[in-house]
Design a protein around this nucleic acid. Sequence first.
DNA 1: CGTGTAAGGAATTCTGACACG
DNA 2: CGTGTAAGGAATTCTGACACG
Lengths: 102, 102
Amino acid sequence: MKSYKDKKVISIGVVSELTGLSERQIRYYEQRQLISPERSKGGTRKYSFMDVERLVEIANKMEDGMQTFEIRKEEKQRANREQVRKKMLRGQLNTAFPNQRK
Amino acid sequence: MKSYKDKKVISIGVVSELTGLSERQIRYYEQRQLISPERSKGGTRKYSFMDVERLVEIANKMEDGMQTFEIRKEEKQRANREQVRKKMLRGQLNTAFPNQRK
DNA sequence: CGTGTAAGGAATTCTGACACG
DNA sequence: CGTGTAAGGAATTCTGACACG
């Protein structure tokens, strides 16, 4: 599943160009935990194309007047629904085919 | 067709890590025209994942004792075959369906 | 031919802070 | 709250050259 899209290889200057956001904004959204880049040994931030897409989404929501904590909450809910969905699917499979793999 | 794979966004330090090649080697292969990164306004090189893949291929061929000019020649031949293939295909299509789109 | 390295300078990025609101 | 900015320093990258072979 891990593809190029998820590799953290892009520096903040390029991300700024790709998204149109200022470096200040990008760092601030990280501080608010909306994104989580990796760091090089020296400490420079590295982003993935996934992060770039996410930043564009964030920028849109900010334009709509949404606040950072709201965006973060929204993201957590999305992640939770994902979790529940998987859990339920697993439960149904276990009911239909009990004793499969252990 | 232009996807993430072709976007020139990776700096030479990261490329070095991804490929295991030294920055010196990477710059040298550019000088020998085996790859062609873009430049930022400030002059720093930017590579794509495609370039990274290409560099790994180059590294393998170098290990096999191939020289840079041979690798470059090989690449040109590949590009030429591609050209010819497309031209022939177009010709056959024109024969089968003449006067289609001008 | 292909690659390492020291050298000096320029571009890039980092953090913490002040400012405005 | 979200963002701009000047400040000082550190990490990153660049070029041209010398070296070896």
